[in-house]
């Protein structure tokens, strides 16, 4: 239906507080363009903030990749957070509510997972971590009302 608008991935560095702000801003903008509603946008930006901070604090920095998706039925957004830090030793423990090593509330991974539709963590001790989160636009946008 539309060939345009299917932009490729945007890669953003994560190396400082200011980068976190930039990632949030980019995710917000991208989600708004894809037609996510305000609540979903807020959830996505919050998830991005949690995950990007993990990349910064635990992974020693890295990058975020934001990719718009279109499965033919609805549009979505994929966010990958990639670092080559120490990795996560016990993933199950790290995914537990309240577990923290970074002085936060321990809701980073487990909380972010609840804010998106698909969530996966690929990690190897000593090699780094890639967290991937995908969300789909919940409602069919009213692009084609009943009668034309």
């Amino acid at each position: 239906m539309q060939q345009s608008g299917q932009a490729s991935a945007t890669s953003l560095p994560i190396g400082s507080d200011a980068d976190l702000a930039w990632v949030r801003q980019q995710v917000r903008q991208c989600a708004a363009q894809l037609g996510f509603g305000l609540v979903q946008q807020t959830k996505l930006v919050t998830a991005a903030s949690e995950l990007a901070r993990n990349t910064l604090v635990h992974g020693g920095g890295g990058r975020a990749e934001i990719t718009p998706l279109d499965n033919g039925r609805t549009r979505g957004l994929r966010m990958c957070f990639i670092d080559s830090g120490p990795g996560i030793r016990d993933l199950e423990l790290a995914m537990t509510d309240g577990y923290t090593t970074g002085g936060g509330l321990g809701l980073g991974l487990s909380g972010a997972k609840r804010l998106v539709h698909e969530f996966s963590v690929d990690t190897e001790p000593g090699r780094g971590t890639t967290v991937t989160a995908v969300a789909w636009v919940a409602q069919v946008p009213a692009s084609r009302p009943g009668v034309r």
Partner: peptide
Amino acid sequence: MRPAVAITLVELGL
């Protein structure tokens, strides 16, 4: 607090 923020915080577990 805005509604969208409140919903997100609850979902986040906070």
